[in-house]
Design a protein around this nucleic acid. Structure first.
Length: 419
DNA sequence: CTTAGGG
DNA sequence: CCCTAAG
């Protein structure tokens, strides 16, 4: 049911009446005109950005076109888009990346195996994070000669209308960590705060694929809120593209910084809803433990941010840490962050007690935590007590465990803030 | 809603 | 990562 079927509605608002007389050709023409006009707009640095917004399909519904970004992106070349910097803090790269994933999503619809292929190829960013640059380059070159042709999945061939996409090798290079010292200066914290913006660019492709379908008990209840928060979060990067509709447990309003007016049409909300219904249908067939499949691996970068956050807010202030250090990471709820900290403690504990095994593990398993970070975790662990250690490792250390255990449980030293 | 704890 | 209970 398009906008042209509304003729039959007698009491439709007068504002829409004008569309009855508009022919399809006219609409198309106006779109084309707008597009070419806008091309010049975008080239012209003097034009303000509101034009861009209305151009990018957000004003489409006003023309009677129910165009989604997906349809829109297929036949259109975004390569000319300049980096309109401050606007929604989204760069050209974000646009391209978003579109790529969107298209990928559509193409791979229902093909879960691809996710596994990606996983088995270790395309996830985590593995490359603490490789020295030469290693990474080697890896990249390996990937370039990829026999399965997987590279093409993320390069131009999948986005016919999009030229100038980033090649995966570049994408990989960007995942290389800035090999910094383990000391946190306030400068560095600021840095990591700023570099948050490109967070999602580092996510492995597999996290985008397959994150569409998900089941959960309270999904119905939280559907609307979830959809809204999803849209909100994705607006941070790109107002039109939302690739992750995985329902969360609840709305994340408080974690999401809401900056602009709601620009989403009901179409998109409805589509997310129908997507959800599909997952209901699929639920029966894939109800088994594929929960873990949707995990997003923690990058070393994220771990460092976590450590920084804890050193600044203290253990237990996870909402604060989320807001200040994982602001742009739409996933990573405070609970996730806490869980990660718990795991880090466990890791540091293990590392502390048997160096050899930990060392070997570090060599064999790619996704272990770099040593420096583990050291920092241990420092913080001794600085901030966490009840996690109650079960297995109490009273081992005579020097400080006494003071720790005295305040271990509920005595909150969380208030320790250093500015 | 936020946090802690267990699964 | 998910779920639940407690404040």
């Amino acid at each position: 049911m398009g906008p042209f079927g509304i003729d039959t509605t007698p009491d439709f608002p007068d504002t829409f009446a004008g569309f009855k007389s508009v022919s399809v050709e006219n609409v198309c023409h106006s779109v084309e005109d707008k597009m070419s006009d806008m091309k010049h707009f975008l080239m012209d640095p003097n034009h303000d950005n509101t034009a861009v917004d209305s151009f990018l399909g957000l004003g489409m519904e006003n023309m009677g076109l129910s165009s989604t970004m997906e349809e829109f992106s297929h036949g259109f070349d975004f390569s000319f888009l300049p980096d309109f910097g401050g606007l929604n803090s989204c760069s050209t790269k974000d646009v391209e990346a978003g579109l790529k994933f969107e298209i990928l999503d559509g193409f791979l619809d229902g093909v879960d195996e691809v996710e596994d292929i990606y996983a088995s190829h270790d395309l996830s960013s985590i593995g490359n994070h603490f490789l020295p640059e030469t290693e990474v380059k080697k890896k990249v070159s390996e990937l370039d000669g990829d026999p399965y042709g997987l590279m093409n999945l993320s390069s131009e061939s999948f986005s016919p209308g999009i030229s100038g996409s980033i090649r995966l090798s570049e994408w990989l290079k960007e995942t290389v960590p800035h090999a910094e010292s383990q000391n946190v200066s306030s400068e560095k914290v600021k840095d990591s705060l700023d570099s948050n913006e490109s967070e999602d660019d580092k996510k492995p492709l597999s996290t985008f694929i397959g994150s569409w379908v998900k089941q959960g008990k309270n999904r119905k209840k939280n559907l609307l809120n979830t959809a809204c928060s999803r849209l909100d979060s994705s607006r941070e990067r790109m107002s039109c593209v939302s690739y992750d509709f995985r329902p969360r447990k609840g709305p994340m309003k408080k974690y999401i910084h809401i900056s602009s007016e709601n620009t989403f049409s009901d179409d998109q909300l409805a589509s997310s809803e129908s997507e959800d219904d599909i997952s209901v249908v699929t639920k029966t067939s894939r109800t088994r433990s594929d929960r873990r499949k949707h995990q997003r691996l923690w990058t070393v970068d994220e771990v460092m941010k976590l450590v920084d956050g804890i050193s600044h807010f203290g253990v237990g202030k996870w909402t604060d840490i989320k807001n200040h250090f994982f602001h742009s990471a739409a996933h990573r709820t405070p609970v996730d962050i806490r869980d990660k900290w718990r795991n880090l403690l466990k890791a540091s504990y293990n590392d502390k007690h048997n160096y050899r095994e930990a060392e070997e593990k570090r060599k064999s398993v790619a996704r272990s935590i770099p040593k420096e970070i583990l050291h920092r975790v241990r420092e913080l662990a001794s600085l901030h007590p966490y009840p996690f250690s109650k079960s297995s490792c109490f009273v081992h250390d005579s020097s400080r465990s006494r003071s720790d255990s005295s305040r271990s449980r509920s005595t909150s030293r969380k208030k320790k803030k250093r500015s």
